[in-house]
């Protein structure tokens, strides 16, 4: 039980970090596309989604493993 709680806490804390990172990257892309101008709205939205998704994929494992590491060892004997 304790193990599951730790896992849940790790997942919650991680999401609080990687979601803003990927949303930030997507927002940055949107801002850049708007500043450059000339892109159809669908291309901008598609780009935001793709950049956001890839950023999520990159940041999610990095952040989760860091948070997990920070949270201490996983209690392997507590089942």
């Amino acid at each position: 039980m304790e193990h599951e709680q730790i896992e849940k806490e790790v997942a919650r804390r991680s999401a609080l970090i990687y979601l803003p990172i990927s949303l930030g990257a997507a927002a940055l892309f949107f801002l850049a596309a708007s500043l450059v101008g000339g892109y159809p709205p669908v291309a901008k939205i598609g780009g935001v989604v793709w950049v956001g998704l890839l950023s999520l994929i990159v940041s999610m494992p990095i952040v989760t493993s860091r948070v997990k590491h920070h949270a201490g060892t996983v209690a392997g004997n507590h089942e």
């Binding site: 990257a25 892309f29 850049a32 596309a33 450059v36 291309a43 780009g47 793709w50 950049v51 890839l54 950023s55 994929i57 990159v58 494992p61 990095i62």
Partner: peptide, 17 residues
Amino acid sequence: ILGVHVLAVLVFVFWFF
């Protein structure tokens, strides 16, 4: 693999802009 995803973002951004 993570490096490749970063590269995929860069490739997308380069060809897009």
